[in-house]
Simulated scan of single mutants.
Amino acid sequence: MIFSRGTIEGIAVALAAHGLIPRGGFRFASDEAAPAGLSGAPAKCALLVGQAGAAPWPHFQRWLAGQPPQAIANPLDTWSRAVIGAVAQEFGARMVSPSDRPYLPFQQWAMRAERLKPSPLGVLMHPQYGLWHAYRGALLFEEEIFLPEPHQTIHLCDTCADKPCLKSCPVDAYSEQRFGHHACLSHVRGPRGEPCRAGGCLDRNACPYGAAYRYPPEVQAFHMAAFARL
Rank of each mutant, 00 (worst) to 15 (best):
E176R: 15
V13C: 06
L116K: 00
N205Q: 12
V219P: 03
H18A: 08
R5W: 13
R189W: 07
Y174S: 02
L131I: 08
R115S: 05
A46D: 09
H126Y: 10
R192C: 00
G19N: 08
E194W: 00
S119V: 05
P170S: 05
Q70D: 14
L185S: 12
W57K: 04
W132S: 01
Q152P: 09
A29D: 13
H18F: 09
C45Q: 13
D31W: 11
A183P: 02
H133V: 09
P148Q: 12
E114G: 04
E176T: 14
D77E: 11
Q89N: 13
G25T: 01
G25C: 04
A55R: 12
S80Y: 08
G122Y: 07
H18C: 04
S186L: 14
E218G: 00
F91M: 05
A86L: 05
A221T: 04
H182S: 15
H155T: 06
G66W: 06
P118H: 01
R178L: 08
S99I: 05
L202R: 03
R189V: 06
A29V: 03
G193W: 01
H187D: 06
P58Y: 08
W79S: 02
A113I: 04
I8R: 15
R62H: 12
T78Q: 15
Q61L: 11
P75G: 04
A34T: 09
N74D: 14
P118Y: 01
F28V: 09
G50D: 05
Y129T: 06
P58C: 13
M1R: 11
F227H: 04
K167I: 10
K163P: 02
F179E: 03
H181V: 12
T78K: 15
L185D: 02
P75E: 07
A134C: 04
L131N: 00
E149N: 11
A16K: 10
P75V: 06
R229Y: 07
L140Q: 02
P216W: 04
F106Y: 07
C165W: 09
R101Y: 11
G53H: 14
G200F: 00
P42G: 10
G193Q: 01
P217T: 04
A41Y: 10
H59T: 07
A198D: 13
A221N: 05
L230V: 06
L139Q: 02
A134W: 00
A34L: 10
A86H: 15
P208E: 07
